[in-house]
Design a protein around this nucleic acid. Sequence first.
DNA 1: GTCTATAATCAGATAGAC
DNA 2: GTCTATCTGATTATAGAC
Lengths: 205, 205
Amino acid sequence: MNLAAPPKVSFKQRMLKVREEAIVHAVNRLLAEKGFDAMTVDEVAAQVGIAKASLYKHFPSKEDLAAAAMVRVMRRAQDFIASLAEDAPPMDNLRAVVRWVLQVKLAGDMPTLPSQNSSLRATLIANRDYMDGLMDLSDRLGAWIEAAQARGELNPQLPAIAILYTFFARACDSVVEFLQMGGLFTDDQITELVLSTCFEGLNSR
Amino acid sequence: MNLAAPPKVSFKQRMLKVREEAIVHAVNRLLAEKGFDAMTVDEVAAQVGIAKASLYKHFPSKEDLAAAAMVRVMRRAQDFIASLAEDAPPMDNLRAVVRWVLQVKLAGDMPTLPSQNSSLRATLIANRDYMDGLMDLSDRLGAWIEAAQARGELNPQLPAIAILYTFFARACDSVVEFLQMGGLFTDDQITELVLSTCFEGLNSR
DNA sequence: GTCTATAATCAGATAGAC
DNA sequence: GTCTATCTGATTATAGAC
């Protein structure tokens, strides 16, 4: 419980914060829609309705814009996790998180970054908020994974870290796009299909 | 059986073919290493050891270069499939194909394209060799998938097309990169891990 | 067909006034 | 901090000689 007085935030500072949130929101949408390379800073500025030079007063580079969007989506994930019952069966929570990821992706709200871009990776690793969020997420999911393995629900022969990475990879699983493009399935059907193949696999049981 | 006389191919034509193969090989490597956007035509030319203008005599655009690399990898997949025993259990063949895909990817030989780039997609769709290869691949794998489902080995409740897409998506599954970056596993271990989670799932059995 | 040299464009980043 | 205008560099693509 934090009993300290809330920090005094001026009106100007709040306005600034709101603007920055608008920027990051726009970046998030553009990253989800066209990816990092195809997204231009001009577009971001246009979408927010400010000049490009103003963007650069808030964020020093395009890479930092992308990093801010990644921090945003990680915060949203943390918020979702916080909304889950801590004492629920770990498997239920893990499935809920993966389902949430798929739904965000299907809604076109999941920013994706090229995993090979090294200058971008350097920016991400140097970003404290990003790294902290990633660690926190890994810790929380990792605990559930190990609990589910101890209960014999998740395969205990798989390294927990491999399971964690498998979950992370669902955020950029192209099978979602393939199924979406095909147009044969609703978003809900795609969600359940991918969720099923992720946990139950493709084989018969 | 083709009993027609082989077409006469001049020395010059063979040289041309060899050069084009060198170009496409270089493109394949660069696409696998850094992706389409980060790959520059200058780099390709430098790697092949010819002038950029000469490249454009062979391929009309960067997109067509990428398409040629995709045709190449699809041919390799078709060759691999042709090497499998037609009368082997379909599941064995499917696992073998997915294993092959993972090994190519782990070896850094799997070209990856940004799925969102529309001009690139247009070029691919307009490319006869690419589309024919994709159809052929889909037909062959689709037949095995349905056979495996009929035998009750692959889950018959899953739409065959969804299983097919799930296989295709393994070619750009970022879990492979995550596991590779972590440095905790050998390539063979990663192959078996991903193969297992793909078919058997993450749950205990 | 291969080369050198160059066009044409585009995008990330900045200068400097207000 | 916001703007307009501009710089700078990189990149795709082509012109034209050989």
